[in-house]
Design a binder for these strands. Sequence first.
DNA 1: GATGAATGAGTCTTCATTCAT
DNA 2: TATGAATGAAGACTCATTCAT
Lengths: 210, 210, 210, 210
Amino acid sequence: MTTVAAPRRRADATRNRARIVAAAREAFVEYGAMAPLDEIARRAGVGNATLYRNFADRRTLIHQVSLAVIDRVVAHAHAAAAEEPDSFAAVSRFVHAAADERIGALCSLLSDSIDPHYPELADARAEMKQVTEDLIARAQADGLLRADVGAGDVMVAMSQLTRPLPGTGCLDLDRLAHRHLQLLLDGLRTVAPSPLPGCAVTLEDLARRG
Amino acid sequence: MTTVAAPRRRADATRNRARIVAAAREAFVEYGAMAPLDEIARRAGVGNATLYRNFADRRTLIHQVSLAVIDRVVAHAHAAAAEEPDSFAAVSRFVHAAADERIGALCSLLSDSIDPHYPELADARAEMKQVTEDLIARAQADGLLRADVGAGDVMVAMSQLTRPLPGTGCLDLDRLAHRHLQLLLDGLRTVAPSPLPGCAVTLEDLARRG
Amino acid sequence: MTTVAAPRRRADATRNRARIVAAAREAFVEYGAMAPLDEIARRAGVGNATLYRNFADRRTLIHQVSLAVIDRVVAHAHAAAAEEPDSFAAVSRFVHAAADERIGALCSLLSDSIDPHYPELADARAEMKQVTEDLIARAQADGLLRADVGAGDVMVAMSQLTRPLPGTGCLDLDRLAHRHLQLLLDGLRTVAPSPLPGCAVTLEDLARRG
Amino acid sequence: MTTVAAPRRRADATRNRARIVAAAREAFVEYGAMAPLDEIARRAGVGNATLYRNFADRRTLIHQVSLAVIDRVVAHAHAAAAEEPDSFAAVSRFVHAAADERIGALCSLLSDSIDPHYPELADARAEMKQVTEDLIARAQADGLLRADVGAGDVMVAMSQLTRPLPGTGCLDLDRLAHRHLQLLLDGLRTVAPSPLPGCAVTLEDLARRG
DNA sequence: GATGAATGAGTCTTCATTCAT
DNA sequence: TATGAATGAAGACTCATTCAT
């Protein structure tokens, strides 16, 4: 009996967890990292206490949402690296795909009230770092992407350009973001670049501040 | 001496008002438009009720801060237009100067909880629109800036790239922002541009959604 | 036992709700419609947020208190109509009973900050109107109550005479109110009335201004 | 010079005082005893600090407003007593005149946050007591006004019936109040009165509670 | 394990009162 | 003396978090 009942329970619980994470991602994108947790529970169709049983506090929930987003972004990076023969095209595809995953929301999620040393998240970020740096490095090695930028530059600029405009339905931004990402990508090409102030930013530089 | 002492304690009050606006600008940059007003009052060194005497509510304060920022940005635009012979250099100088004025903060200020018909602000925005569109149009007419972007594109992208990372001291971002603005500017040049998705965004497009 | 345990902790919650309504009625009678809600919560023995969970804002609480008072007043009217053979005695009994239900408090509750179109309350008021007008009309038809007054006159005068004296323990007023209601009732009799200024006031007249 | 300048000053000050008292009376009638003092100052066309210079606190202001109202009411009582041959007509005229002086506002003014022993006010109340009791007693001696009521009954009932309905423009009430006062007066006549509960209330009874 | 309810701490806003000119 | 400005204290309301069923 125990063996039968337990998995059924776990199925429900897992489903609830997933629904909460999904609802939280949308709410964070819409309201920012301060989205009311009761509202997230409501959207997920669960009681607020269920949210707290699964995620001890807001930070934990943010961690999990970040993990989910990063996982999908990493998958896009792998796919782009594997399937695009042109190394700059791989970068470009990755950037646009990450935008669609709302990576911009991570910007506000990751900077505020978060433990950058949270183990699972650190691992995920390490993997994201690895794969994006590989993408960039390959395009630079091919002479297609200017040499004076680092993966950190690309990640931050891309995150900023895709951040939600607070208080706005994000639909307009979707349209704009892809235009501006394309401008950024054109600026990243090796054709006639201007000198950049400062020096290339790696993802280590970003992590260091935490 | 020219005008008799009509405003008596006006000096102190004006000073307080200015200090509140300054404190609010910094707080908005740091915390976003939802920065606690009590904290702003504390930073300005006044009681909370003084803030409310000068600015009836958060919206009014946001309006005034926006006005102050826009005024300075407009001044930079005029200076750039007047002093830079190269029309693209004028755009570039304007973009970097606006970043230093924390125009990115306006993104969150202007989109949330604001009355776009507030007369003074509407006027200021109209002037900013005029001068930025002039800058862009001149560079486009000179064949230096790609024709498929509008002033709205430039304003939004520039605002996003200079938005504060919530919860972070903004110093790092200052360094990054200028790098990324330069990438954007390189992407805006007429040298080998990629096709952009969607169509050019004017400032009217942005105002329309408000 | 008839219905299965669908409402679980409903017992506690219902009790709290009732205690809040009771405390609010007393506070409104004592302080008027602007009674501090925190004070009401304290008197009810609950946290202030519990009050807000049950009643979204002051208006909602006022609505519910009004409903409770009106319900009881209506019940008295029905009882008086059914049990008093003398039609003027029915009016008299109703008036004195309504005073004991603190109908005077409704005067301040209903006139201030209230949505006259709130459906439940509109229904309750309609029923109160119906039953009081019936009482009055019957006594007028019997020639016992002067013909130049309307139900609105009676309701307003009765409400005013039973309104709490702000800042006073209401015990004294209870004694006075019944005396003055009796004077009013004597003035309502058909014996030797003076001409009244203006014209009879119906309850529609009162509702119209809301 | 001093003798010339001083009286001019005093003339201004006296005018300000009077304007504040008048504005306060209207505001109290409209908003109740809790009317914002800044609003009163605004209506009087003076700075708020001027109000405080003239009236140390709200209680003092209420005292002065009460004095002014009582003075006028007393004047009406004297006039009615002197000019009306019919003693009940004198009572009636007094009651309606007092209503027009907004004596109902005094009800809330006098009961809340007031020192009944404030000397000037005590004197004024004593005079009002004297003159109203004389009016009542004369009508009772003439057999025109029922013997089981006291001046306190009349004063309280009359005050209650003329109290402002909170949150309403008082115009409607003016119309209603005179109707209901007339009903009350009819109830006060010696024609076929009902037995009243309790015993006659003198003005001493009312003062005693403070 | 899941839920509705309760709660205290925090934020915005108002207002009586005091201060400096 | 009259005034605009400053202020602290209080009240409405929200929200993250805990508790009892």
